[in-house]
Amino acid sequence: MLKVVYVIYTQGHAAPTGELVRGDLCDEARWLAGTLCDLLPEEPEAWGLASLLAYTDARRPARLDADGEVVLLRDQDRSRWDAEAIAAGRRLLARALALRRVGPYQLQAAIAGAHASAPTFDDTDWRTIRRLYAVLARLEPSPIVSLNEAVAAALSEGPESGLALLSPIAEELDGYHYFHLARADMLAATGERGAARAAFDRALALCENETERRTIARVAAERTP
């Protein structure tokens, strides 16, 4: 049931087609997560999921600009992040951790909390985020978790570290546009513009959401002029 609620939220947070952000689905998922906390008060992962959704949803007001275009995390106006949602995420995670049985949703909530506590993108504690993803990868291995660890490694240790972590998952995630987008960004940071452009093109070909496609095209033009 926790997984179902999480999937509902992700469909609202970044819909694969049509309108990118579906606030109604995000709100419904958060309500369901809260209901599960009421029904399962001794299940730490219920509290962890509720915390993760609160922390993540706090960014919703800043994710799109006035024209409905995507604002990247590094460019978001953090004063627009929902302070009440961040506070709720903090309280819910504390409740989860008090039950002393750490699980994947709690680790993801801790990662989201690290983002929420940083006043700017450059102040983000990427080293801690990478360590949390490494723990998550041991607890619940998946190529998506490895991708996120690679991004954190690139931002904490340099793009070469991130690219090294991408190599083992390249085949599994070849059809996933976020993989190619992350790889393109890392390649651009190393000065490999041709390879970066090819990776941006691959991401663009795989992405089905028109709003995201415009963002990828814009970022590609900026990163590989």
Results as ranks from 00 to 15, higher is better:
A116V: 11
A87V: 07
E140I: 03
E69H: 08
R101Q: 10
E149Y: 03
R101E: 12
R63E: 11
P104D: 10
L64A: 00
I111W: 07
D123E: 11
A118N: 01
E149C: 08
T124M: 00
R59E: 12
P159T: 04
D125P: 06
Q76L: 02
L97H: 14
G48P: 06
G162Q: 00
G68P: 01
A164D: 11
A85L: 15
R131I: 02
V145K: 03
A116L: 12
F121C: 05
V145A: 08
V71L: 11
R80Y: 05
E69W: 05
A54D: 11
Y133Q: 11
V71Q: 05
V145C: 05
E171H: 15
S146V: 10
W126D: 00
A137V: 06
P143W: 05
T120Q: 03
A83S: 14
A109I: 07
N148C: 14
A66I: 07
L107H: 01
S161I: 00
S167C: 05
P168E: 14
A137I: 02
R78G: 10
P159L: 09
Y105K: 08
S167Q: 14
S79L: 15
A118K: 07
L163T: 01
I144L: 15
S79N: 15
A170Q: 15
A109H: 04
L72N: 08
R90C: 01
R131V: 13
A154C: 10
D65C: 04
E69A: 13
A50E: 00
S161T: 09
A66M: 10
D57R: 00
V151T: 03
L97S: 06
V71W: 09
R59Y: 02
L132T: 06
R101F: 00
A96I: 04
R80W: 09
G89I: 02
R74V: 11
Y105A: 10
N148F: 15
L136C: 08
A150C: 01
A137T: 10
R80P: 02
L53V: 11
L97E: 15
P168A: 13
D123G: 05
Q106W: 07
L163R: 05
R91E: 15
R100E: 12
R138E: 12
R138H: 11
E69C: 04
